[in-house]
């Protein structure tokens, strides 16, 4: 599928319609059942504060798109990725995702330090929804890409962070997913591996993979994305040309820094 680039009818793969995510944050320590019962009996009630992480977001991406998401910390970027990754259901609105999603936000999720690299490939791979049989067939390819043959039968606690990341990336992207979610992780690992992984992402993209990337690295965003959404306090302030998005975002950030905090 990646080898020959036939013209694609670019289908809609991600569609968010007026999505809201509301967190309930208990204001007092009523997170225990004991506390809850005592408060209910005493008729004091449990007070919660609402926090709107996303407030009416509408956003879409087609096959082959490379969408960037920028915004300050706590603007709702990661929540947005979680909605697409199916980790979270919106409080209201609609989330439509078509295809197999590979979340790179979960690099190394579920790695077990006492198990070997090989065993962890199976554990991590199945956590991402692969079947054992497929992983067995792809094992050689996965280890090749990570360049970890020497250490593959050593417990993973002996691995460096970089080696962990290489293995995790290699497992998560061994097969071309329909949608790749990247959360600030490409900056990990040495320069050569970074280049190698970007090369793989770009090859998949030509094969029709859609990518959504959250990053604070404006250079990566500028170089990789063809569309960028700027999110601020749970709302979209701008979607479109990467240059414009980055400019508006950085200007707003500078202005905010200049003003005294509210």
């Amino acid at each position: 599928m990646n080898e020959h680039k036939e013209p694609m009818n670019r289908e809609r793969v991600i569609q968010l319609e007026n999505v809201r995510v509301k967190y309930q944050v208990p204001t007092e320590s009523a997170r225990t059942l004991k506390e809850f019962i005592i408060r209910s009996v005493q008729n004091r009630g449990v007070h919660t504060q609402e926090f709107l992480a996303l407030d009416g977001i509408s956003l879409e991406a087609d096959q082959g798109d490379f969408l960037g998401i920028i915004g300050a910390n706590g603007a709702g970027k990661s929540t947005l990725l979680k909605l697409i990754a199916q980790v979270m259901r919106p409080t209201s609105g609609r989330v439509y995702v078509r295809g197999r999603v590979a979340p790179l936000l979960a690099m190394g999720a579920g790695f077990h330090p006492d198990l070997t690299g090989r065993e962890n490939i199976f554990l991590n791979g199945t956590l991402l929804g692969y079947q054992r049989g497929d992983l067995e067939k792809r094992l050689e390819h996965i280890v090749d890409f990570a360049g970890l043959w020497e250490f593959i039968d050593a417990p993973i606690r002996t691995f460096s962070t970089g080696m962990n990341m290489r293995l995790a990336f290699s497992v998560a992207t061994d097969l071309q997913p329909d949608i790749l979610l990247v959360d600030e992780v490409l900056s990990v690992g040495d320069a050569i591996f970074q280049e190698k992984s970007l090369e793989r992402i770009n090859r998949y993209r030509e094969g029709g993979m859609t990518t959504v990337m959250v990053s604070h690295g404006m250079d990566v965003i500028r170089n990789q994305c063809d569309r960028v959404a700027w999110i601020d306090h749970g709302q979209i302030r701008y979607v479109g040309d990467p240059g414009t998005a980055i400019e508006r975002y950085t200007t707003a950030m500078h202005e905010r820094e200049a003003e005294p905090a509210l």
Binding site: Y96, Q176, D178
Partner: peptide, 15 residues
Amino acid sequence: MSTTTQTTPIYDTDR
């Protein structure tokens, strides 16, 4: 890998 078109999983909170 080309089988993805037949078995494409669809996640839709509306349905």
